[in-house]
């Protein structure tokens, strides 16, 4: 680990220690928030009892479907729109204002349309994630140098060959950013929707235990989501950096 990473770890550990002290000395009551060490302990207890595992599985399953769908649809639409200039110009205002629209407001509509199963939650995650993938794909394709495409023409590469040898490697860092955003947004969408109204999943567990003043379940569930989303984000961040470095060489 480099020096910055070490210092970052120190800061996080320091913050945790500060919260721990505040909780242990009674300044923050256990009724409001148990000490971090206690939360980790509760999490182990819950996991050993086999609770939360089903909720984690359900949430990850929905997030995974939302990510796969949004990457496939986002990249495919991005490639198609990149070719159709007029359509792209017409859609640009939509992309630009899209994230200002409170997507959760559509959630009740989806529940009416699709029932209270996983579908509305996956759809919310998908709606949040797709446009990020789409816009990343577009900016990735924009940055492919003309010279390389002309070289491909000169060498009479087939479209498939051009995509494999030129377009993909050039656009890869942007695609990676798109995938990273997709994972974050899918998490935010799915967990948020579960929280608002659903029958299972981590978001539901948190809301349910909150309504029952069950801190011994709620805080471990919150911790689980924090760990899952930061873990996924850090892993993808590393992957993105290796792609960028490879391009730099």
């Amino acid at each position: 680990m480099n020096r910055a990473g070490f210092h970052r770890l120190c800061i996080v550990a320091g913050l945790l220690a500060a919260i721990e002290v505040l909780c242990r000395t009674g300044i923050v009551t256990p009724f409001a928030m148990p000490a971090p060490s206690r939360i980790v302990f509760d999490l182990f207890v819950l996991l050993r009892a086999g609770q939360l595992i089903a909720a984690v599985g359900k949430t990850l399953h929905d997030v995974a479907i939302a990510v796969v769908l949004s990457v496939v649809v986002g990249v495919a639409t991005g490639v198609a729109i990149h070719r159709l200039r007029g359509l792209r110009r017409a859609l640009e205002p939509l992309f630009a204002t899209y994230y200002a629209i409170p997507v959760y407001a559509f959630y009740p509509l989806f529940i009416v349309l699709f029932g209270l199963g996983s579908t509305p939650q996956i759809l919310i995650g998908f709606m949040l994630a797709t446009i990020a993938v789409l816009t990343s794909t577009l900016s990735g394709l924009d940055r492919v140098p003309r010279v390389l495409l002309r070289t491909a023409l000169a060498y009479r590469l087939s479209p498939l060959e051009t995509a494999r040898r030129i377009t993909l490697p050039c656009a890869a860092p942007f695609l990676a950013t798109g995938v990273k955003l997709a994972v974050s947004y899918a998490f935010i969408g799915v967990v948020g929707a579960e929280f608002i109204m659903s029958r299972d999943g981590l978001g539901y567990e948190i809301n349910f235990s909150y309504n029952n003043f069950d801190n011994a379940t709620m805080y471990p569930a919150i911790l689980t989501i924090l760990l899952l989303s930061t873990g996924a984000n850090l892993a993808l961040h590393r992957w993105e950096r290796t792609l960028l470095q490879r391009r730099g060489r």
Binding site: A4, H7, A32, I188, I206, A221, I222, S229, T230, N233
Partner: peptide, 28 residues
């Protein structure tokens, strides 16, 4: 150097589904 330390922390904070922090905010 401070930016180098803080950037991944901020990006992680951006990626967290903040809705789950709701009970904590309400408690405070």
């Amino acid at each position: 150097y401070a930016a180098e330390i803080a950037e991944p922390l901020l990006v992680s904070a951006y990626a967290v589904p903040k809705i789950v922090l709701y009970p904590i905010v309400l408690t405070i």
